[in-house]
Amino acid sequence: MWFCRLRSPRLAMMWASSWCSPMRIDGRRPRARVAADMRGDFEISRIIASTFLTMSLCWDSSGSLIVAIGSSRATRVRESRAAPPHDQRQSRFGGRTMLRTRMADSTGSLRPVPAVEKTARILRALAEGGRPQGISELARALKVSKGTLRDILLTLDSHGFVVRDPDTRFRLGPQLRALADASSPDLRALAQPYLVSLMETFGETAILGVPHDGKLEIAARAEPTSGLHMSAPLGRRLPLDAGAHGKVLLHGEAIGYDDQELFRGVRAVAAAVTDARGRRVAAVMVVGFKERVDLRTLRRIGERCATAAVAMSRRIGAPARDEAVSA
């Protein structure tokens, strides 16, 4: 059985009735031809008429009109009794069973594309290997044929995703870095909700600092709208090897505390944000005057900074081993 989709019952019946109109062959009706041709024409007309008698109108689950064209009753009975394939659905109309194939754009299950899957495995193997590798070595490790592997590698080479060295070994290419940079989230936009939360919780200025040219640049901030508080102009640069941020970015501490070390009368606390490669790429900080932030409060703020830094690190793909931050 097969069926087609029409917009209205009127169009469906007009289309169906056109099948039963007298046939013209070479501009003449069948009776103008020889007896043999007439018998052939009659057989064609009989088939068309028989098909028309098996046609019916129904609506699918989306409400679209369908004209169903079936075979003889005996055949339909056999079809209705047969078990449908796993990837087909059944709908009934007037006691008749119609088999309908699932739409091709269904996203219910994953159907991997072999060539894409092999390409992903090749790129991952080159990345995890940490060095250029030859076709034979990769073929053994991935258990794929050398011919297929060679074709994929040369295609990737033409796009700059891998590079072929003079010794015919392959390594990752520069275009992968461009793709990675394009997919990296904007740390400034990512950090803003966390900075606002820290500022609103403790009433002090929250900062995102990013290392740049040997300095720490203030890339984002959240300042209280009233009351005495520290000001943090965007773009301002601080020494990278001092203060709370220096302790977490350069010295690897989980939480860095600054009790009037960088600026007199100012206390600060920082926690590092790590990227997918485990690098410490930014610092979440809170700064305030010593009269407003005692040492006990500074510890509490430090714990919240560490929690915010871990959450941000997850968002940019930090490894799981860097997610545990101890206070």
Rank of each mutant, 00 (worst) to 15 (best):
R124S: 13
V284M: 07
L176R: 07
S18I: 00
G63A: 04
R89C: 06
R100K: 09
P193G: 10
H86C: 08
W59C: 09
R33Y: 10
M14E: 08
A324T: 10
A125R: 08
G27K: 14
I135G: 05
L250W: 01
R296C: 04
E253D: 14
I316S: 05
R46L: 10
D87V: 07
T107I: 06
R221V: 14
A206T: 00
A182K: 14
A180R: 15
R314V: 10
S64H: 15
G134M: 05
R111H: 13
L99S: 10
R299Y: 07
S326A: 13
L176I: 09
K118E: 11
A68I: 08
R96C: 11
R92W: 13
R299N: 07
S62Q: 15
G70V: 01
G317Q: 03
A74K: 14
S109P: 11
V144A: 11
G160V: 07
F3K: 06
V210C: 10
A12W: 00
S91V: 12
T225G: 15
S50Q: 09
A74C: 06
G278N: 11
L262E: 01
F289G: 00
R299P: 14
Q90E: 15
E117Y: 04
D165W: 01
V162R: 02
G70F: 04
E217D: 05
R78S: 11
E217I: 02
P85N: 06
L187P: 00
M230F: 13
A282T: 13
K290Q: 12
C20G: 10
I301F: 04
R96F: 14
S313Y: 02
D167C: 02
M13G: 03
S226M: 01
R267T: 06
E303N: 15
A182Q: 09
S158K: 15
V269P: 04
L228G: 08
G235P: 04
M38Y: 02
R89Y: 12
S197A: 15
A283D: 03
I301Y: 01
V310D: 05
R121A: 08
A306K: 02
R315W: 04
M14V: 03
R33E: 03
L249M: 02
A270C: 01
L187M: 13
A242Q: 15
V162P: 01
S17G: 03
S197D: 13
S80G: 07
D37I: 09
F3Y: 10
H212D: 13
E253C: 04
P166Q: 08
G160K: 14
P319E: 04
S50D: 14
R24A: 02
K247Y: 03
A74Q: 11
P22T: 03
R24L: 08
P233Y: 08
R39E: 14
G209K: 03
L153G: 01
R39Y: 08
I301R: 04
P132Y: 01
Q175K: 06
A12V: 06
R150A: 12
P9M: 00
R7V: 00
H229K: 11
S184T: 08
V273G: 05
R10G: 05
D241Q: 06
A318T: 02
D41P: 00
V248G: 10
L262D: 02
T101I: 08
